[in-house]
């Protein structure tokens, strides 16, 4: 990776860090503590499971929200504020700038997830939970899901605006989580049009359900080893595809 990418990533990280977006950790941390207290009062015997369930849900939500909102403004802000002119007039390629910005934001998302996850583990162990590798894998896929949302919202923002980008990404995120559930319905079997659409979606668009491990962790379901490999490859491929598309678009973008 070029030095320019790292310099821009560091700058991007600093910029987002200073914007106090990580205050979200404090907010969600307090919320997690409160919910855990409530849960331990009402869920006899399985308090640690419910805490893990709520905690992973909150962590996933916060990663996706940060990626969605900041990803959609990552380059747009630089164009609107004209800061990118000061950078791109130097011997810096546009792809280096874009990658640097993405890595900076990805690092912020990572920091956010790790901080909340650490708090969650402390609570989980305090309630008597025990470590399972699946918990670690869940965090990994929550991160990959956030990364995918980040590059999708960035990509869509390059040819629309942040609001449209957020709406499209969010729609695809919800649809991507729902397609597998739709497949289990009676309507899917009966309706050719719906079946055609869902099949097309699962084949050609990101299927977020493939990255969702939470139910497997909570109900101790078994997953074959190659599942992790396939799901990792699937998520990396989609992140890569959207980054490549974003770079192609950004290279052609008129910086008026």
């Amino acid at each position: 990776m070029s030095m320019n990418v790292l310099l821009i990533a560091k700058q991007s990280f600093k910029e987002i860090y200073q914007s106090k977006v990580l205050m979200n950790i404090l907010f969600l941390g307090v919320l997690l503590l409160l919910l855990t207290f409530v849960v331990s009062e009402f869920s006899y015997g399985v308090a640690e499971k419910v805490t893990l369930d709520i905690g992973l849900g909150l962590i996933s939500l916060s990663g996706v929200a940060i990626s969605l909102f900041l990803g959609s403004r990552l380059i747009v802000n630089e164009v609107e504020n004209r800061t990118l002119y000061m950078v791109l007039v130097r011997p810096v390629a546009r792809y280096e700038f874009l990658l640097g910005k993405v890595i900076g934001l990805a690092a912020i998302v990572f920091l956010n997830l790790i901080a909340l996850f650490s708090l969650l583990l402390v609570l989980y162990f305090a309630l008597g939970g025990s470590w399972d590798n699946m918990i670690g894998w869940t965090l990994f896929f929550v991160y990959m899901e956030s990364l995918l949302v980040l590059v999708m919202s960035l990509f869509f923002s390059l040819f629309s605006n942040p609001i449209i980008s957020i709406m499209v990404t969010l729609t695809m995120f919800i649809a991507g989580h729902g397609v597998e559930t739709v497949k289990e319905t009676h309507l899917y079997q009966k309706d050719d049009l719906l079946r055609g659409f869902v099949d097309f979606y699962t084949q050609w668009l990101p299927n977020f359900d493939k990255l969702n491990l939470k139910n497997y962790v909570l109900y101790n379901k078994f997953l074959p080893n190659d599942w992790f490999l396939v799901a990792s490859g699937y998520s990396f491929t989609w992140v890569f595809v959207f980054i490549v598309f974003a770079i192609v678009l950004f290279n052609k973008k008129e910086l008026t």
Partner: peptide, 30 residues
């Protein structure tokens, strides 16, 4: 581009940086 110095109209800078940090950042990119 490495031999051009450019100053845009109504420039905006990263507000959380000091002037020195901003210059060092751009110098490093150069």
């Amino acid at each position: 581009r490495s031999k051009i110095g450019y100053f845009p109209e109504s420039p905006y800078f990263y507000p959380y940086l000091t002037g020195m940090e901003f210059c060092q950042y751009l110098g490093a990119l150069q």
